[in-house]
């Protein structure tokens, strides 16, 4: 059985858990547990919290979706989760400009390690005062080749669209 991994990241309350819940075939596993020695960077007292979802692609292939912890104290998990990932979705709460800096920090983090295919999902587009994807692109200073997509993490079609757009980016980098 081959597994591939996508990572869903974003600031606290960006909608990561909801995003995974909406598309996962299994009940989303949200964990909070003591760290183990598996993660060398983790301090003993640190707890780990993340979300995990799964989509079976076929008998021999499964897609795992990992939601990174949003809190700063769990930064160390990002590196671990990003190892071997196929692609990355950065979720942004479009109604909360106070989280934009943190979002940039997260993007910087992931991009400083590797050239991972990623898209930005402008979540909560159904809410009043949501910044549009184009406004978010400017606010986050994202280059024009990075896709910034409208998203409602509670809507399955919207989540599917984000994943398909990410897969389109991944496809462009894949080999025959």
């Amino acid at each position: 059985m081959q597994t591939v991994k996508m990572v869903i990241s974003g600031a606290v309350n960006a909608g990561k858990t909801e995003f995974i819940k909406t598309i996962s075939e299994i009940e989303v596993v949200s964990t909070e547990r003591p760290a183990t020695d598996d993660t060398r960077l983790i301090k003993k007292e640190t707890t780990v919290a993340m979300d995990f979802g799964r989509i079976a692609i076929g008998d021999d292939l499964v897609l795992h979706l990992f939601g990174t912890p949003g809190q700063k104290r769990f930064d160390f998990m990002w590196e671990i989760l990003s190892e071997g990932m196929l692609g990355l979705v950065i979720l942004v709460d479009s109604t909360r400009p106070e989280t934009f800096r943190e979002t940039n920090r997260i993007i910087d983090f992931f991009m400083s390690y590797r050239e991972t295919p990623y898209v930005v999902a402008a979540n909560k587009q159904d809410r009043p005062n949501a910044w549009s994807p184009e406004e978010l692109r400017l606010a986050l200073r994202l280059p024009s080749h990075i896709k910034v997509l409208p998203c409602m993490a509670t809507d399955r079609e919207s989540v599917k669209n984000v994943l398909l757009e990410l897969l389109d980016v991944i496809m462009q980098r894949s080999e025959d």
Binding site: V4, A56, R114, E115, R156, I170, M171, E175, D176
Partner: peptide, 22 residues
């Protein structure tokens, strides 16, 4: 070591088809 894994187009196509069908 840190380079993102290169995947086959056929694998990506399978995932795309699966998600489209959900």
């Amino acid at each position: 070591l840190a380079e993102a894994p290169r995947v086959k187009k056929s694998l990506v196509t399978r995932i795309i088809n699966r998600i489209r069908g959900m």
